[in-house]
């Protein structure tokens, strides 16, 4: 065994020893600082590490619970589901991938949409689910987002979209790309009737989703540490053949470069969203 191998082995052991044997799902290790946290405490803190402020990724259901009025969510278009119209197969058939993701999540695709109350104020909301096939945008996500925006054009209530997506869903080919145009075109109509659109860019938002509705908010908000990019860090590293600087494409970097208005800690999000919406909305003096 060469000395190099010896070091490699030692390094490996060092890493694996980090893994803790955590009983059940009562405890979680922070992905930011490796602190072990009691799940109940973490949830009470809106899934933000009390020690290092790391913002855990959260599901649409958790976001609804953390930010909006209890039991006020009226879901729309929950019945729209994906179709494997290209009969696309890679290492697994798209049809099977869909089934597996649906079984795991209990929902039909990667976004939930509807009407909800924000401190008593009615808003149109869409929340993407990174857990469902990487939050990828196919026909269903594009259609539901578009319908939500069109609802905003009709009912004049502000539109808030939480993005979390790896981009377009390859398995739907060119039609997934076209969802970028469809959703952005709907936002053009929303702008014409002066209904505010707030984009809350959540971790991670990349590719076709960032290059369409995620970046088009009248106000773009994001959470600390969120990855926001057009091309993913790996693709860029391959192109330029060098390591990327620390913090590149993170929320704070985008703020510095003028791409988002504010980086908002999760515990301030509810109040800030309400304030922004109330300030911008020309249609809704009454709540």
């Amino acid at each position: 065994m060469s000395i190099v191998d010896w070091f490699a082995k030692k390094e490996k052991r060092r890493h694996s020893s980090k893994k803790l044997n955590i009983p059940g799902d009562l405890w979680v290790k922070c992905l930011g600082c490796t602190e072990v946290l009691f799940l109940k405490d973490l949830e009470a803190n809106l899934k933000v590490c009390p020690r290092c402020n790391y913002h855990f990724r959260v599901s649409p259901e958790e976001r609804l619970k953390f930010l909006f009025d209890p039991d006020s969510f009226e879901e729309t278009n929950a019945g729209i589901g994906p179709v494997d119209f290209l009969t696309f197969t890679d290492t697994e058939a798209y049809a099977d991938r869909i089934k597996r993701a649906q079984k795991k999540s209990g929902v039909k695709d990667a976004v939930r949409t509807g009407r909800v109350l924000l401190k008593g104020k009615s808003v149109n909301v869409a929340i993407m689910d990174f857990g469902f096939m990487g939050g990828s945008m196919g026909s269903v996500v594009g259609e539901k987002i578009t319908r939500l925006i069109e609802a905003g054009v009709e009912n004049k209530h502000p539109v808030i979209i939480f993005t979390a997506s790896g981009g377009a869903r390859m398995q739907e080919g060119i039609l997934s790309l076209m969802q970028m145009a469809k959703t952005s075109a709907a936002l053009n109509r929303l702008a014409e009737v002066s209904v505010p659109y707030i984009s809350v860019v959540c971790d991670p938002t990349t590719g076709g989703t960032s290059a369409s509705f995620a970046m088009l908010g009248d106000v773009n908000l994001t959470e600390p540490g969120t990855l926001i990019s057009f091309a993913g860090p790996r693709v860029i590293e391959q192109t330029i053949r060098q390591k990327l600087p620390k913090g590149f494409q993170r929320a704070e970097f985008l703020l510095e470069h003028g791409m988002v208005d504010r980086v908002v800690p999760r515990n301030e999000m509810r109040q800030l969203l309400f304030d922004v919406v109330m300030l911008l909305d020309p249609h809704g003096a009454e709540i």
Partner: peptide
């Protein structure tokens, strides 16, 4: 896909074109 392109908002530039072209 490069550093400068990301810094100057590649995603925003494309997104804006999609929205503006629609109108």
């Amino acid at each position: 896909p490069g550093l400068g392109a990301e810094e100057r908002g590649q995603a925003e530039a494309i997104a804006r074109n999609l929205r503006e072209m629609a109108g």
